[in-house]
Design a protein around this nucleic acid. Structure first.
Length: 595
RNA sequence: GCGCUCUUAGCUCAGCAGGAUAGAGCAACAGCCUUCUAAGCUGUGGGUCGGGCGUUCGAAUCGCCCAGAGCGCGCCA
């Protein structure tokens, strides 16, 4: 494994600190806040000054003097209260670039301690449309999935389908009202149920809405839904058979949505799959003396006695299981069957308390020894009023509608198949490429718009923003890649090869320094589970490249050596950008056709 | 009532394991296509970091108080 630039510098600093008998814990640099003064800065002297009871500038000067011996640094200075400013030599920088450009992982480290990580995201519900709110979970989860795999962890992703609670009973009940004659509702019938039902997913969402409205108004309907839910969960053959159809129809529709977003899961399990294990949890809780009966429900008390938390309700008064126990049972299954070392949930942060409760209960039941549980709560997608987004008519905007909207916008700036037919041999081929291109750009716009925001904070959903391609957007980065691809094709045609990197201009140097940050960025994203770190870096890297691209010609540089050097730098930039987009779950088109 | 989160440029957001001149994008304004894709580049203007107090050599960043906004709190998931 080759060392990254920052690691090399830190190593040198550590040695220097040790030589001066200073605590090497402070021997770290970061990218300089003052690029006009230096490439990197070390604030260690300031931190040390306190414990050593010395003047920070004195310590800094000592360190600086030691570092002067090293030809790797082109400039060393002590500034302000005791910052050590370091600039690296062009030689060191170009060496690091060479290493990166030759490494298939582009100089990124793999983990030394691979873990099995279960990711729980997406969480669509049976018979409910996917809306913009599902976007965040899916997009963030997919990004972390790709990142964790990239750094060498074993990842198992699971949608955790909402397919079990009272809503199921409500829908079954509603269908029964419409078609009481259907064999599913014959309590005595055990098998031989119809192979299909005449509903599409749109029908199911309508039925659910109707059921929801009915139960809201009518106590009798609510009661009926509860009874049916209980019978259904208890294994009523007809209800179960009908439910299987509902589930399948919904999953098919959901899969289409996720495929469109290039989001993929290893497992399509749901709340229903945890049902049997819930009984085990009930037994376990009793054995451990963790549960108790309260007002007819079975609960686990949480928190310190002086600072109690709301309890976890395992079983309701009517005997039904709650989503608390389903989640606890699911943890048990993930640990026992999947051997999870880590389970990470991506949901709306309004569920933060729920997960705190579930995690604490799992802990009490001894289910998670050496297992790390983490809830990544993200902010809601809000409308201009600051409240969770609704369309003008008060409904939620469907995910499909959003994607179509973005595609329509992309089409406006893409040429027609006829216009470019000659480049593709035929109109059909051209159309195929364009359709795919529109898709990739639209999805990039949507995903980047979401991923550029901090996970924890919500954001104001502006429909127009998802169809904008200027500035800090996904298409901007795709565009930078496409321009490099174009240069590569030209170079190949002219039979010009890339060659060793020499730094000759400020723009080359800035680009190289930016590229050198890759590994640090990847690991910070991993530690924080924060894809916006990658999206931000990808954007600034693309920006740095664009500046470089505009400042001097690559193909028409002063000498063949510089052409080769810049080609390599450009190719490396493209590879890094492609990797970054991949980690964000975004595709990079080879050519960006434009009107 | 208890608890959690947020408040930074006209708008949308970064920055927050304290550090040197608070950054982007959009919008506005002024430039740049006979030269590698202008979905681009260069430049200009724009901020008492919600308010106050404190800790510190140093606070947008840490602590306390206040104001405003959002969210969550035993049988919905």
């Amino acid at each position: 494994m080759t060392q990254t630039l920052e690691q090399k510098i830190n190593k040198k600093l550590e040695q220097t600190f040790e030589k001066l008998s200073l605590n090497p814990q402070y021997a770290t640099v970061k990218t300089s806040d003052r690029p006009d003064l230096s490439d990197f800065q070390c604030n260690g002297a300031l931190a040390l000054a306190k414990s050593e009871r010395k003047n920070p500038r004195e310590i800094a000067s000592q360190i600086a003097a030691e570092l002067e011996q090293d030809s790797s640094f082109s400039k060393i200075s002590v500034d302000g209260p005791g910052f050590i400013n370091l600039s690296v030599s062009d030689k060191l920088l170009s060496d690091v670039m060479e290493d990166m450009s030759q490494d298939e992982r582009l100089g990124c480290e793999k983990t030394n301690t691979p873990k099995t990580v279960v990711l729980d995201f997406g969480a669509p519900n049976v018979a409910k449309d996917m809306h913009v709110g599902h976007l965040r979970s899916a997009v963030i989860g997919e990004s972390i999935q790709r990142l964790e795999r990239f750094i060498g962890n074993k990842v198992i992703s699971d949608t955790h389908l909402g397919d079990w609670g009272t809503p199921m009973g409500m829908i079954i009940s509603e269908i029964m009202l419409a078609h009481p004659e259907w064999p599913f509702f014959d309590d005595d019938k055990k098998d031989g149920f119809p192979d299909s039902i005449p509903y599409a997913v749109e029908d199911l969402t309508e039925i659910y809405k109707a059921a929801n409205a009915r139960c809201k108004e009518d106590e009798a309907a609510r009661q009926q839904a509860r009874i049916i839910t209980a019978k259904f969960q208890d294994g009523h053959p007809g209800y179960r058979a009908l439910w299987q159809h509902l589930r399948r129809i919904s999953v098919d529709a959901v899969k289409k949505n996720f495929d469109a977003l290039d989001v993929h899961f290893d497992l399509w399990l749901g709340e229903s799959d945890a049902h049997e294990t819930c009984y085990k949890i009930m037994d376990l809780a009793q054995e451990k003396g963790a549960s108790e009966k309260d007002d007819g429900a079975v609960i686990i008390r949480l928190g310190e006695s002086n600072k109690p938390k709301p309890p976890v309700i395992l079983q309701k008064t009517d005997g039904g299981f709650t989503y608390h126990i389903t989640d606890i049972a699911t943890i048990k299954m993930r640990v026992d069957d999947l051997h999870a070392d880590e389970i990470i949930y991506f949901t709306d942060k309004r569920q933060a308390l729920h997960f705190e409760q579930v995690f604490e209960a799992a802990e009490k039941l001894g289910l998670v020894k050496d297992v790390k549980l983490q809830h990544i709560g993200f902010g809601t997608v809000n409308g201009p009023d600051g409240k969770p987004f609704k369309t003008r008519d008060g409904g939620v905007m469907k995910l499909e509608a959003l994607i179509d909207l973005s595609k329509e916008k992309v089409k406006e700036s893409v040429p027609t198949a006829e216009d470019v037919a000659k480049d593709f041999g035929s109109v059909e081929e051209a159309q195929k490429y364009i359709d795919n291109l529109v898709d990739e750009i639209a999805i990039a716009a949507i995903k980047f718009q979401d991923l550029k925001n901090n996970t924890a904070s919500g954001y104001i959903f502006e429909v127009d923003d998802f169809a904008k391609f200027d500035g800090k957007t996904g298409p901007y980065i795709q565009y930078a890649i496409a321009r490099i691809n174009s240069i590569m094709r030209k170079a190949a045609t002219a039979n010009i090869k890339e060659g060793s990197i020499t730094i000759t201009t400020k723009e080359e140097r800035d680009l190289a320094l930016k590229l050198a940050q890759l590994n640090t960025i990847i690991w910070r994203t991993h530690n924080d589970k924060e894809p916006s770190i990658i999206s931000d870096y990808a954007y600034t890297l693309a920006q740095t490249f664009s500046t470089f691209y505009n400042a001097a010609s690559i193909m028409n540089a002063e000498s063949p050596e510089i052409v080769s050097s810049r080609l390599r730098l450009a190719r490396l930039t493209r590879d890094v950008l492609k990797l970054l987009l991949y980690l964000l779950g975004i595709k990079a088109p080879e050519v960006m056709l434009k009107k």
